[in-house]
């Protein structure tokens, strides 16, 4: 029994780690702007395509940092162009703008690639196979959780100990008061998007190494799942998002192991609905009260 489950468990942990890297971006943006950044999943996909096109001209050691840099630039630009002009608009307008950006990015990627799935480059070492017990898997499966945890610890350290981290905490507590205290809100928000996109880029390298091909809509589903993970863990809480992502990744793969592959996506959303109904603030979320 365990032998049968083990490969699924391993890929569950690995996928969970990849979701976690995306989910952190969602949860940070939501914590500060109260915005579901629907375009985050497409930024993740775009990182995949950057990689596909980069390795055709550059060696892989240079390509990876460049991909991360480009993704960060994309995230930064999206925020400046599509969200900043709507700072004083109602929340729903910003969300519609996010949906519009997602639509634009998907169409743009479709145009550039001609709508075809692109082969993701094999990255030496992390695409190698290893055998654990009875299960054969790629090295990337083993690296992902370790790398995820390391990155998240680093991020939490930044938020707890640096000046910009303190500013982020202040802004997420109270947007307007933070502004009055002299915090440059725009630079804090930009930093949030930069960190989110950076983690999404790393997540994308790990995720697509596992799946071998990228399509313009490949990131939509992982994006939504990562968002569910963020809600599950309590939106705004970084450790919560990570734990939520691992739980979702593992559950999803166990459901696949049991033979209900059609429902692996549906399960995630069912979990979301259950959480929203019984504990809307998630596992580690702070309780907020409705103001009139």
């Amino acid at each position: 029994m365990f032998d049968k489950i083990l490969p699924y468990l391993l890929s569950g942990i690995s996928v969970g780690g990849q979701y976690a890297l995306i989910a952190v971006g969602y949860t940070m943006v939501y914590g500060i702007l109260r915005l579901i950044n629907f375009a985050h999943g497409d930024i993740f996909t775009a990182a995949g395509f950057f990689m596909v096109y980069m390795v055709t001209v550059l060696p892989i050691q240079i390509a990876i940092p460049l991909v991360v840099a480009l993704t960060v630039l994309l995230g930064f630009t999206v925020e400046r162009v599509a969200y900043k002009p709507l700072r004083s608009a109602p929340r729903m307008s910003v969300m519609i703008s996010a949906i519009g950006v997602s639509y634009l990015l998907q169409n743009l990627m479709w145009y550039v690639t001609g709508g075809l799935a692109k082969q993701y480059p094999t990255i030496p070492w992390i695409s190698q196979s290893v055998t654990i017990g009875t299960a054969t898997t790629k090295v990337v499966t083993l690296i992902t959780p370790v790398l995820t945890v390391l990155l998240v610890i680093a991020l939490v350290a930044i938020i707890q100990n640096t000046k910009i981290g303190m500013a982020m905490r202040a802004v997420s507590k109270d947007f307007e008061t933070a502004q009055l205290m002299g915090i440059k809100i725009d630079s804090v928000i930009s930093t949030t998007f930069i960190i989110g996109s950076l983690l999404a880029a790393v997540g994308s390298v790990l995720y697509f190494s596992n799946y071998a091909s990228v399509t313009p809509t490949a990131g939509a589903m992982p994006g939504l799942k990562a968002f569910v993970a963020a809600v599950f863990g309590g939106i705004g809480s970084i450790p919560g998002a990570v734990i939520g992502a691992f739980i979702i990744g593992i559950c999803e793969n166990i459901i696949k192991a049991l033979g209900y592959t059609t429902f692996s996506d549906a399960f995630t959303f069912a979990l979301l609905i259950v959480i929203l109904l019984f504990k809307p603030t998630g596992l580690f979320g702070e309780k907020t009260s409705e103001k009139v």
Binding site: L224, V231, F269, L272, I273
Partner: peptide, 12 residues
């Protein structure tokens, strides 16, 4: 936005 994401989930 919670309503938005829950209805999106139900559609899926």
């Amino acid at each position: 936005d919670y309503l938005a994401i829950a209805t999106l989930g139900f559609a899926e």
